[in-house]
Computed example of a mutant assay.
Amino acid sequence: MAKIALKVDVDTLRGTQEGVPNLGRLLQRHNLKATFLFSLGPDHTGWALKRVFRPGFLKKVSRTSVLEHYGLKTLLYGVLLPGPDIGKEAANEMRAVDQAGHETGIHTWDHVAWQDAVRDRDPQWTQTQMQKSWDRFVEIFGHPPITYGAAGWQMNEAAFEKLDQWGIRFSSDGRSEPNLMPYRLALPSGKAKHVQYPTTLPTFDELIGVDGASELDAVKQILAITQSNPNDQVFTLHAELEGQKLLPAFEALIRGWLEQGHDLVTMGELHQSWEATKQLDKIAVLPLAWAEIPNRSGELIVQTH
């Protein structure tokens, strides 16, 4: 059957210290490896409260119980409590995942600042944020990141060009339909060197609560998409959700995929499989595009056709 890459976005201090080890133990039980993308600087989760005015945001948080998943303390970071430095306070948890053989890469420096601002920020701001994350990653792990995955599926052209300057070969910064077709971006500087592998499957928080859907219903919906589907997929999970309250639902999803005969892999293994078949020589070069997707507020980077 198909390959399904497991991409873990780690947004907060709590997610790093609690969700990441939980996921590590779960994956070890199933003899699986995943790609963990870390937020490496300050946790300013509380800043996200200003999104209350964004269309669709209140509906999303009411469905996914943000307070229950993230905790009151995390929601106060940057508002009533100082934002802790994730890379300094949770370096041991990050290194443990790397040492266990999982793939590790950069998610962002400051998650909320990046997600809410990067689309309209200039190259200098963008490169400063990215360089901070690179320097901290190397400081923690002792080696450069293998890959990258944008916070909130938000980037700009300068950010994509920075990935090429770093020598990143593959990244996952946008969304697409459940039919993975890697592509390269057309940038002002020319065709991007790195390959984009967009998230193709809906996330748990985009399904739970829609028309009363439960966690188990969300699992069934995702498995219905991958049942008898020969296309490779990328699934994004969050250490704050699937690494904590939704851990049993995520394990049910893993079991379902294995029963369907799919090969659960890291982003790097997915990239290697496309390299091995020489298909990357023929992939499309597409412009940077934005659109809304069901059950998530705001516009995200999307793959055009």
Rank of each mutant, 00 (worst) to 15 (best):
D85N: 13
L241C: 08
H111R: 06
H262D: 06
I293P: 00
F250D: 09
I4C: 06
V210L: 14
S65K: 15
K132N: 06
T108G: 11
Q131E: 07
I168F: 04
L201F: 06
R169G: 00
L264W: 03
S228V: 10
A218C: 10
H44E: 14
V97Y: 03
N295P: 02
Q115I: 03
L72N: 07
S297L: 02
K282M: 08
A218M: 12
E292N: 14
K88M: 09
Q154C: 04
L280M: 09
Q127P: 00
Q28L: 11
L23Y: 03
S172K: 08
Y70Q: 13
D211I: 04
I225T: 12
F170C: 11
P182L: 13
R255E: 15
F53R: 15
K278M: 09
N179I: 12
S65I: 05
G174E: 04
W47R: 07
F204C: 05
E161Q: 14
E259T: 13
T147K: 03
E18M: 04
R54H: 13
G149Y: 02
D263R: 13
G243D: 02
K33Y: 07
W274E: 12
Q303G: 01
R136H: 02
V20W: 00
E299D: 08
G298R: 10
V20L: 15
K245G: 00
R63Q: 14
Q154V: 07
T203K: 08
R51K: 12
I140R: 02
W125F: 03
N31P: 02
R169M: 09
V52N: 13
Y183I: 05
A252W: 08
T16G: 00
E68H: 15
V195M: 08
I301P: 00
P82S: 09
G105N: 13
K50L: 10
E18P: 00
S133F: 01
D122R: 10
Q272I: 12
K282V: 04
L241A: 12
L288Q: 05
G149H: 07
